[in-house]
Nucleic acid binder design. Structure first.
Length: 288
DNA sequence: ACTAGCCCCTGGGAGC
DNA sequence: TGCTCCCAGGGGCTAG
């Protein structure tokens, strides 16, 4: 599912092909047969009509990632925000049978959002109002930004002292972009049990956590992201990070950590933490 | 302000 | 082979 490295990969791909292009029209069937609660997204028919008016004729000025969101900045000082959720793909010049949103571009190519499960959401706001946006405005720091550090990581996680570390890492207002796969892989690498109380983890562990977090995210980006579920990049191609998983989706398998190989009890387990699955090795991941 | 639990959705895998 | 059931999960929402 698209987390930081996958959204990054999509955005990097899109940058080269949609920036400078004019949107001539937009089509969607997202509002057909879907419910959306009270939230204002294009699944709401009236909101979609407003959205259509807004993007029609606008030029794409730039594209960027913020957390798991794709921000498309338009020449008319509006920005639209795409969240791919579980099975969304934002693609250029490619289509599949799950396309629910199409941006027609002046060069007669299409930017499409396909989503088998229709969980993806699209909203828009004034570009200068982004910091007040209901979700984007509340996102925590970017783990790969230059200004991020081990100290910041500690400060942010301390905001969820009483939570299990697994849940704290997944909170987008604490850190932007980490999801289920990368949180499992990070905790496995540094040997911390997912149920550890965030506030009880020794302070000196956070330096290592910071390094490992950046290492894993960068490694995945290098490999085009993770397509264990069904991620496809901007051109419909899969990533390779799924071939490097150490714990995620490895329940009942022997832990591959050097000290755990061939050891009894070093069998990957899965448990549910706040409704999310967490995979871990009971042998080397310590519970604080 | 918190949090547990439901909901959105559908392909794929397990079990029979 | 073909059916049914259950699972995956980000994050919004609601009831307590």
């Amino acid at each position: 599912m698209p987390e930081l490295p996958e959204v990054h990969t999509t955005v990097e791909g899109l940058k080269g092909v949609i920036v400078g292009k004019t949107i001539t029209d937009v089509w969607s069937d997202f509002h057909v047969g879907t419910s959306h609660g009270k939230r204002q997204t294009i699944k709401n028919k009236k909101y979609f009509e407003k959205f259509r008016k807004l993007v029609k004729g606008a030029k794409i000025k730039s594209v960027e990632r913020r957390g798991k969101n794709i921000l498309v900045h338009l020449s008319n000082d509006y920005t639209f925000i795409v969240h791919m959720k579980m099975t969304g793909h934002l693609m250029y010049g490619v289509k599949d049978k799950f396309v629910h949103l199409i941006f027609k571009l002046k060069n007669s190519q299409n930017l499409v959002l396909s989503d088998m499960r229709k969980f993806a959401s699209v909203t828009f706001c004034k570009t200068e109002g982004l910091e007040k946006h209901e979700t984007v405005g509340k996102l925590g720091p970017e783990p790969l930004s230059k200004s991020f550090s081990a100290e910041k990581l500690l400060t942010q996680l301390q905001k969820r002292k009483s939570w299990p570390i697994k849940s704290a890492l997944l909170d987008q207002t604490v850190l932007a972009g980490i999801g289920n796969i990368y949180s499992d892989e990070i905790l496995w690498e540094i040997g911390i049990h997912p149920l550890s109380h965030t506030g009880k983890i020794p302070k000196n562990k956070f330096g290592e956590m910071f390094k490992v977090m950046q290492k894993i995210l960068r490694f995945s980006i290098k490999h085009g992201g993770d397509s264990k579920s069904d991620y496809l990049n901007a051109f419909g191609k899969k990533g390779n990070f799924q071939n490097f998983h150490k714990v995620y989706g490895k329940r009942k398998e022997q832990c591959p950590k050097p000290g755990c190989r061939n050891k009894k009890g070093a069998i990957i387990e899965r448990l549910v933490v706040k409704g999310r699955s967490a995979h871990f090795c009971p042998k080397h991941q310590i519970k604080f």
